[in-house]
């Protein structure tokens, strides 16, 4: 086992968090960090996967699911999150949708010397939108996902979980 694998967040852990928090639907667009997670989600009869072609679509779909009584979760990459700014504002924040967005943190480096502007602007974007967020990098961080769900429910606002990309836990 490599050092990276030892500290990775496993897809099974993410699925367990989804179950613990009663997620019913995953609205998502594939990215390189989530392929193995996709296989697990697809095999789970209790999760509905709604694939989108652009990340902003995930916001209005999640809002509709929530309006109808479901508990959706959004799974996208940071690039798509930034693309989705107006949809996050209008469909999630504007309608008080307590969705958790699990966001692949492309370009993330723990030391902060980024070579990818996707990482450079991710947290600045979230701060500009005043969206609460948590960073997870390994299984030891998994309880932060539940913290995010609790906060979303309490505040009736979207909350982001950034998945540190450095260790590629989903993509083993």
């Amino acid at each position: 086992m490599t050092d990276a694998a030892a500290v990775a967040m496993s897809p099974e852990t993410v699925i367990r968090q989804m179950k613990q928090n009663h997620v019913t639907d995953i609205v998502w667009l594939p990215d390189s960090e989530t392929n193995f997670l996709y296989l697990l989600m697809q095999a789970d009869p209790d999760l509905r996967l709604v694939g989108v072609t652009r990340e902003g679509h995930a916001c209005s779909i999640a809002a509709g699911l929530y309006a109808g009584g479901r508990k959706p979760m959004i799974l996208i990459q940071n690039t798509g999150m930034m693309e989705s700014g107006d949809s996050i504002r209008g469909w999630l924040m504007g309608l008080n949708v307590p969705a958790v967005l699990m966001v692949g943190y492309r370009g993330y480096t723990r030391h902060g010397v980024n070579t990818d502007t996707a990482a450079t602007y991710t947290e600045r974007f979230l701060m500009a939108f005043n969206i609460s967020y948590y960073l997870v990098e390994s299984d030891a961080d998994a309880d932060r996902i539940s913290v995010a769900f609790a906060e979303a429910e309490r505040t009736k606002k979207p909350v982001v979980v950034l998945v540190g990309d450095e260790f590629h836990g989903f993509n083993r």
Binding site: D25, R48, A58, S60, I61, G64, L65, A67, G68, R70
Partner: peptide
């Protein structure tokens, strides 16, 4: 998208 989500939920 909102309509889709609502239709799936109901």
């Amino acid at each position: 998208g909102f309509g889709l989500g609502l239709a799936l939920a109901q």
